[in-house]
Design a protein around this nucleic acid. Sequence first.
DNA 1: ACGGATTCCTGATGGC
DNA 2: TGCCATCAGGAATCCG
Length: 277
Amino acid sequence: MPELPEVETIARTLAPEVLGRTILSVCAPDPSALLPGPEAFAALATGAVIRSVGRRGKLLLLALDRNGRDGGDIAAHLRMTGRIVAYAPGQEPERPRAVLDLSGGVRLCFADVRRFGAMHAFGPGAMAAWPFYASLGPEPFALTESAFQHRLGAGRARIKALLLDQTVLAGIGNIYADESLFRAGIRPDTPACALTPRRRTALFAAIQAVLAQAIAENGSSIRDYRDAHGDAGAFQNHFRAYGRAGQPCLDCGEPMRSMRVAGRTSTYCPHCQPDRR
DNA sequence: ACGGATTCCTGATGGC
DNA sequence: TGCCATCAGGAATCCG
């Protein structure tokens, strides 16, 4: 599922394919893929030039330019199975929900078997008023350690629920929450009020280290994730917690266990991630 | 207010 | 081999 490292990789691989190209036309085999609707999307996007490719949390962002002025934005949320792939002329998109035809014969394809994701088009300045966008917390790499400590608060909310909350920190999903908590030695259901400053420091370092390594490995490909060239990532080969329930802990050999936290399967080592310290 | 359950959706998987 | 139940989960929404 595309989280911060995957979307970052998509942005990096997509940029050289689409920067400076004009959106010539839009088609949507699945009209629900485009918001606020296929006609409105086409009206906002057609004729605009892709000025920059970026990321905010798990959102892939295309900044548009129209006649040298701000042309609005396109924000794609891939949820679980979404893919954004740039196809060269002659290549055929695979099961697209939406296709943007760009100058030079390039086609930007949005595919998404489970249809949870969407591409949103916004006029100039309008994206900032989108509630989801406006409520996003800070980027994990644009935040001081003390600010991170403060954002976790001192309530009874379980730490994993906080890491998954995009208003607390933007970009972390189930994979990187489990991996970060394992590396920090913190059980997923530990309440924030039980985390000492020392534990929070370890968690902050673990989050940054895990995300940086995952970006360096071009993300994690469990099943669906691909970058904008259609290539898989490699961080799934470095998982130490996610998906390893029943397998021996790579640090101590004890069987990994799983529990439900915040509605998600959470895998942890009962020895290396003891409750409350 | 805050946590939990439900909903959306389809393909992979496992049991029988 | 085929069928069916279960599971995967990001975020909106509802509910206690």
